[in-house]
């Protein structure tokens, strides 16, 4: 036991875990503030700006309020599943960060099937919604979980198929190797990012990821106007907070994957003294993720929700054939070159 605790590799691992998950937890908390403030600016109102300078202490106030809220359980709800559902949605969402490389040295663990691991745990996250909606013993959450499961099946296919072209070009399933394959420049000024090789795949990925994370214009599982608040209508206090946490975790996870697959991951200009060379890749990576997150927040405040049949038709009749055609053309070009 003592050997373990003084082992250098073990301590480094613990340090990485603390940095990655500590940083992420802070990011989730402040993402709620960013989302509310940015949406407020788009809609020309000030947003939450009372607690601390620019409302910067708002997440802490929210957290305290969540802690002291009354814990309610609806009558006739299945006690075990009702309690387990928020955790079932949080654990897969956090698990995907264990393989995401935030920098050359800042990664919890590297697997040779890392990308598939992210998709596998992402596909499990729907159960948190489905079980929560079922266990609440209430009409609106049940409708929400049905919608969510149908939506998930339809869009997961396009999501997974859209990245196959990138994998064929990179010739690997490891996220680190995918990032390394995008190092360098074309013609001296264009970065070797996959977005220039796979623009169609990128568009499909972004649309499918929006549906996967249940955000506008595909947030039919949550749609406030019809379903009160969707699957977490009957949840309050900390359990509701865990659902929100899982939602933000999923949002950041899909942004990370989009950055790694299409925008070169941590690659970027590197300069300055040694400590800056070490820290710069992570800064580039975080900046690229922030762009995606900002894009998703802007989209939420500008785009109207689609109808359910439109969503299904779009997923099966447009996204899936385009994703398949993209794979065909890419594999032809890869085979020829």
């Amino acid at each position: 036991m003592i050997d373990y605790l003084t082992n250098r590799d073990f301590l480094l691992m613990v340090l990485r875990l603390v940095i990655v998950f500590g940083g992420l937890m802070g990011a989730f908390a402040y993402l709620s503030l960013v989302e509310r403030r940015v949406m407020a600016f788009v809609q020309m109102r000030p947003g939450p700006n009372r607690v601390g300078p620019f409302g910067l202490l708002q997440p802490i106030a929210d957290g305290l309020k969540f802690l002291f809220k009354e814990q309610i359980r609806p009558t006739g709800a299945n006690a075990w599943l009702y309690l387990a559902a928020p955790l079932i949605s949080l654990v897969p969402a956090l698990l995907s960060f264990s393989v995401i490389p935030f920098g050359p040295a800042l990664q919890v663990t590297d697997l040779n099937v890392a990308l598939l691991v992210v998709f596998a745990v992402g596909s499990l996250s729907v159960y948190g919604i489905v079980i929560g909606g079922w266990a609440s013993n209430s009409k609106y959450p049940l409708i929400a979980s049905m919608r969510s499961s149908a939506q998930m099946i339809s869009y997961e296919l396009s999501l997974t198929l859209s990245v196959v072209g990138v994998l064929m070009i990179g010739n690997t399933l490891s996220l680190v190797k995918l990032v390394q394959s995008q190092e360098g420049l074309w013609l001296g000024f264009i970065p070797r990012w996959n977005i220039f090789l796979q623009p169609v795949a990128f568009v499909i990925y972004i649309i499918a990821a929006t549906a996967e994370t249940n955000r506008l214009p595909f947030d039919l599982a949550e749609s406030e106007q019809e379903l009160v608040s969707g699957w977490h209508t009957e949840y309050s206090g900390m359990k509701f907070a865990i659902y929100m946490l899982a939602e933000y975790a999923n949002l950041i996870a899909v942004s990370c994957i989009a950055t790694i697959l299409f925008f070169g991951g941590w690659n970027g200009p590197s300069f300055g003294p040694d400590w800056m060379v070490m820290i710069l890749p992570t800064i580039w990576f975080v900046m690229k993720i922030s762009v995606f997150v900002f894009f998703y927040v802007l989209m939420r405040s500008t785009v109207p929700r689609v109808r359910y049949d439109q969503l299904m038709r779009f997923g099966w009749k447009l996204m899936l054939p385009v994703a398949l055609a993209n794979i065909l053309i890419t594999s032809l070009l890869v085979a020829l070159s």
Binding site: A120, G122, S123, V130, M146, S149
Partner: peptide, 24 residues
Amino acid sequence: DFLAVINVIVYAGAIMVLFVFVIM
């Protein structure tokens, strides 16, 4: 590893979601 991940993606992540959807 590969088999394990594919098992989760195909069965737990896709087919069982379909099962649960139909049951609901």
